[in-house]
Simulated scan of single mutants.
Amino acid sequence: MEIEISSSIHLMYVSEIQQEMYDSAQRRGTGIAKRSIEYLSKKITEGNAVVATDKGKWVGFCYIETWSHGQFVANSGLIVSPEFRHLGVATLIKDKVFTLSRNKYPNAKIFGLTTGLAVMKINSDLGYKPVIYSELTQDEEFWNGCKSCVNYDILMKKERKNCLCTAMLFVPENIKNSAGKSQSENQYNNEQESSFSI
């Protein structure tokens, strides 16, 4: 299996990725902001996504988006093909997209919204902490992306203070160890040297 930063060669998987994002949310009965084929295609061609494949078959996906003029980066849309679940693929993809985010935006706060316990655990292992929504970007365009979520009414009734998703945030300068580097940054540096092919 290969886990790579995306390029135009991965566009062949975009319809399958979009469909699995939707189907997975339906099966779990949770909300997910729908993304168009055009939106996902742009992420892929710009190199702002990570795609996992195995012998020409799509395995998993996640993309990054910047907000508030690069002060915040979201790692979003994490999805793994059903036949490759429970094999640790999501963790490898999140590691790779986290590294991509840190390389492109080293001073940005990295955040995510999720209802998934497994994603919360992965984020926690990377150094994210649960936060209240006011600590996230207040960029209107980000919150407009929630409009297609089935839980959007809840978000608005709560005046964007909380919803069913848990907000998690990684702040580069917050997690320092005795060597003066964050634990997650040490992990990030180690990951840069390791291969993501298994």
Rank of each mutant, 00 (worst) to 15 (best):
N174E: 10
K104F: 05
S197W: 06
S15A: 06
A49C: 04
F61G: 12
S182Y: 01
Y188L: 12
N144V: 08
F196W: 05
Q26M: 12
W143E: 15
N151W: 01
E2Q: 12
F196P: 06
G88L: 08
A167N: 04
S36M: 00
S15D: 14
G56F: 04
T30G: 09
R28I: 01
L11G: 08
W143F: 12
V150S: 13
D54P: 05
I32K: 01
D23Y: 01
K57W: 04
G47S: 13
S41M: 02
S124W: 02
G56D: 10
K176E: 09
R85S: 13
V119Y: 10
K161R: 05
L164T: 14
Y133H: 13
S148T: 13
D95K: 14
G47F: 08
I32R: 02
G29T: 06
R35V: 07
E83R: 06
F84V: 15
P130F: 02
K42Q: 14
I93W: 04
K34W: 05
K96Q: 07
G145M: 05
S124V: 00
T30E: 14
E141W: 06
E185V: 03
E135S: 11
E20T: 12
E16L: 01
S182N: 08
I154C: 05
H69K: 15
G112E: 04
